[in-house]
Amino acid sequence: MRCVDVTRELSAPTGDRQSSALAQHLAACPQCAAWAARDMKLNQLWDATRPVEPSTEVWNEVWTEISARLDRPDVLPFREAPTIRPGRRILMITLGVAQAAAILLAVFFFTRAPGGPQPDATVHQPVRPVDGAPPSSVAQSDSDPLDIDPDGSLVVLRIEAPGKVEKTEVALNDNSGRVDSGFEMLNFLESAAKQ
């Protein structure tokens, strides 16, 4: 027998090997003899300290209990919902309503801010931008501002004389889908002023 066969047989006995051949190898090989001695001591220690195995009845009881728990609907350990005192509940509801009202107010004021939607701006009848349209002369007074609604064109107020203004609309946009030219000019001049 080789050493590896001896140690394997001692660790997991198969019973196939002849005990005489095993004993003969152990007598001739000090390393395997020492290994066999350690193995025997370990087995003795395990036999002395191993826990008592539960009996078949105990195993049956345990599995019966596990099956019963699995069948119950409340098998998962849900955390109980925290109890809220009525006073605190009212406070939380009040705060929630106040928060919602504040958000609505903020949205309302933001939409009225400059640059936001101007729903009233569409109320007026738009002036049709016609390139070269006949100018309209109007008498001007401070209490009655000249109402302009360029609708894509550029309004030019030609000052004829103090108090006399001639309104002309010049079509700038070429309907190419680009940004309004008047808006572009305003952006350009504003950025030029900041330079």
Partner: peptide
Amino acid sequence: VSQFSTAVATPPNQLFFCDQK
């Protein structure tokens, strides 16, 4: 000394011109 004065109601983000020859 005022040379001209005009009051205008214009939509926001729109440019208008006053032209004096």
